[in-house]
């Protein structure tokens, strides 16, 4: 220890070289998130006749390292809304705190007529768009699932650029490539939502989580799933993938040391 308190707790310059101070707020320009660090992978969701199912696994990756294996990426906002987070986990935690303060403020204002999924989507989309316009994005892709003002199923997305869209089925990240085609087979349009029951929708989303685990290297077999209906939110945060079939793996030829 030396006599300069500024140096305490930092790597010694004589051992590690000059300390890079650029991440401190000094005279230079503000530094913003330029890339995500600890990330969550896909979120998948589908509407059915009485509500919405949404799921995401419990993994937070640090690059290719499976860093945190018990991270809940679905957040229940109230009895009407669940938000699913893909992308940077620290930005997710910031948004979580933001939603907490929003909820407290709203409950002081009035207890009847709570915020619905549509309200919350508008709010989050504006937060995301404001942050991208400030060149300080929240590095997330969000799915907002729940019921709208008329108690109809609502599902929409908002991303780090503030882009928003809504569809009977939605998936972020890898799921947009792998899960969306599977879900669109059953629920191609708004009209077919009426024909899908809760059990069918849950089965479909669980099947997608399985496919994602097979093919997404940054995924995990432990996941969270939530069903939002008029009865409220059923959120389970410690599901395990069932009936995995790795038989297809035997058929794969042409990698590694095998001779085809």
């Amino acid at each position: 220890m030396n006599h300069l308190p500024q140096a305490w707790g930092r790597p010694r310059d004589d051992v590690y070289g000059a300390y890079d101070n650029s991440h401190f707020q000094t005279a230079g320009p503000n530094q913003h998130t330029q890339s995500p660090i600890v990330t969550g992978t896909s979120v998948v969701a589908a509407k059915f006749k009485d509500g919405v199912v949404i799921a995401s696994d419990n993994l937070a990756s640090y690059g290719s390292l499976a860093r945190f294996t018990d991270v809940k990426r679905l957040r229940k906002f109230n009895e009407n809304v669940v938000v699913g987070f893909g992308g940077d986990v620290s930005d997710m935690q910031y948004l979580d705190r933001l939603l907490n303060s929003l909820d407290i403020r709203e409950n002081y204002a009035s207890a009847d007529d709570p915020l619905n999924a549509k309200n919350l989507h508008t709010y989050l989309a504006k937060v995301m768009y404001k942050r991208r316009s400030d060149f300080n994005p929240l590095w997330n892709h969000l799915l907002i699932a729940g019921l709208d003002g008329e108690a109809k199923p609502f599902l929409a997305s908002a991303d780090l650029l503030g882009t928003t869209f809504s569809s009977p089925t939605l998936a972020t990240g890898f799921g947009a490539h792998l899960a969306q085609p599977i879900m669109r087979r059953t629920i191609p349009d708004e009209a077919s939502v009426e024909k899908v029951s809760k059990d069918e929708a849950v089965k479909l989303v669980k099947e997608c989580m399985k496919v994602l685990f097979y093919r997404d290297a940054r995924s995990m077999d432990k996941y969270s799933i939530a069903v939002i209906t008029k009865e409220g939110v059923e959120l389970s945060e410690d599901e395990k993938l069932e009936n995995q079939s790795w038989a297809f793996a035997e058929q794969i030829r042409g990698y590694g040391t095998q001779t085809a």
Partner: peptide, 21 residues
């Protein structure tokens, strides 16, 4: 800011490298 002064050695060692990485 808690940071050592910029552009110079912040510590009492004489052979401090001054180039920022």
């Amino acid at each position: 800011s808690g940071a050592p002064p910029q552009g110079g050695p912040g510590y009492s060692f004489t052979q401090t490298p001054t180039a920022v990485p």
